[in-house]
Design a protein around this nucleic acid. Structure first.
Lengths: 258, 258
DNA sequence: ACTAATTCGAACACACTTGAACAGTACCGT
DNA sequence: ACGGTACTGTTCAAGTGTGTTCGAATTAGT
């Protein structure tokens, strides 16, 4: 693999998942840590990503209303990976699915590029990129339209209208917060609208939320907890939350990261 | 094997796999490293691929990294720049405009990032990127939805439906070909559909076409020549074409690229 | 058939990339 | 505050890749 290609691939990953780890990249591409560090440095010099201790993150796009987002996404990396792996198992060849915007769904996207004949609808440009770069002619990727948020999601009436004409088997919804009272929430009002439209368009709702999301409440509610058919989270959830969720959500899946 | 054939084969491979290695090509075609390097250099000079240490990659591996896009539109660069400059003069602050996909419209986009309070609708991801990178909060950029073509345009029923709900002051349409009989044409059927929807949604149609487009006919017609309100082209047009266009199009603008 | 032009390969000096080793630094739990 | 662990950048050596220059071989033109 050419150094250039490796760097491009790293950049893809950072953009899609929000953060990468030096050790993980070194293992994946079969090169030394130092080589990865030098790649990251080259990319950072061009302003394409930000080097941090242990890896790199996006150059901080959504940090305006969400400080510490990038760093956090690195920390919850294992949880997201485990959740995504479990979610991918729900998808069968030929399915028509939707993926909301978010780092967890971006990780999931990477696990779905090998599913044959998949149709994917998403309002996330990075998620669409993941499939587009895979270049599989049997897969169809539909971007909803709309205006772009700082986190590369497409929102607004155009997006909602586009989704209204579609019908999907399953929606994988990444959320920013969940609580008993507010249900699933996000900090962006327009994004909540789009997510609600996605929920309406899909037969089944699968919510992806690592355990740190519990108790977080964004400004805008998407749907109440019980609307989910499946929820996938990790074992960092405290006992009360877990029992409450297992009573509320028809199918609660708790994965064990690592 | 002829040098020409070898170069064509190399280009195919780069396009298919995203990247090639000098050593690998030398072994495969049974020629020396130097010959391969000279091949790559020749192809790179024509803007068909990008030489990198150890081999070569596609000229723009994926989404809009600025250098890739610039290199891609190297053909008729001066003409496109002059046309774009003239087109930009038609836009006023506060306008709601549409930009089709294409290299010329991408150049135009770069000249429009400083126009205050602009609303831009486009089905081109690179064009949207240009505005997004500028990050002006007073501008609104709306991406139509749809599936992605290899040239990063969004097409299909979702795109057409999204456009149907919008009304724009002006459409800047970049075309792949134009002729008396076929009108404005593009090689992609789905893209023609989207372009037609954009034409319907806009009050005025401004066609951007450098002189080399005359006589080129793509598979799919968008609209007839006379549908344009303004056409901007360069002075490379022959006399018969120029007189024909000036009779057909209400306003024909011929720019002089330097 | 002769000459000119082009293409190719070999050799060279130089530049780049990589991995290992090391000393220093940041993070984390106690 | 402390120490252990993991991560960092620097330096160096080895391996690759690079362009230039030259001569040989092939091709094209007259």
């Amino acid at each position: 693999m050419l150094a250039q290609q490796r760097q491009a691939a790293i950049l893809d990953r950072v953009r899609a998942t929000g953060g990468v780890r030096v050790s993980e990249l070194a293992a994946e591409y079969g090169v030394s840590d130092m080589t990865i560090r030098r790649d990251l440095e080259a990319l950072a010099d061009r302003g394409l990503l930000a080097k941090v201790h242990g890896g790199a993150t996006t150059v901080s796009p959504g940090s305006a209303h969400e400080p510490g987002f990038a760093a956090k996404s690195v920390r919850q990396r294992d949880e997201k990976a485990a959740i995504a792996a479990r979610a991918a198992a729900l998808v069968s060849p030929g399915d028509a699915i939707a993926l909301s915007a978010g780092t967890t769904t971006a990780v999931l996207a990477q696990r779905l590029v090998d599913v044959p004949s998949l149709t994917v609808v998403t309002n996330s440009i990075p998620v669409a990129d993941v499939f587009y770069r895979a270049g599989r002619p049997d897969q169809t990727v539909v971007l909803t339209g709309g205006t772009r948020t700082p986190s590369d999601a497409l929102v607004g009436p155009v997006a909602v209208a586009a989704i209204g004409t579609l019908h999907l088997d399953m929606l994988f919804l990444g959320v920013h917060g969940m609580s008993e009272r507010a249900g699933y929430t996000t900090p962006n009002l327009m994004e909540a609208d789009v997510n609600r439209a996605l929920v309406e368009a899909a037969e089944r709702l699968v919510v992806l939320a690592d355990s740190t999301k519990w108790g977080t409440v964004g400004i805008s509610s998407i749907v109440p907890l019980e609307r989910a058919n499946v929820m996938i989270t990790d074992d960092g959830l405290d006992t009360t939350a877990r029992s409450l969720l297992s009573e509320t959500v028809p199918e609660l899946v708790v994965v064990n990261p690592q």
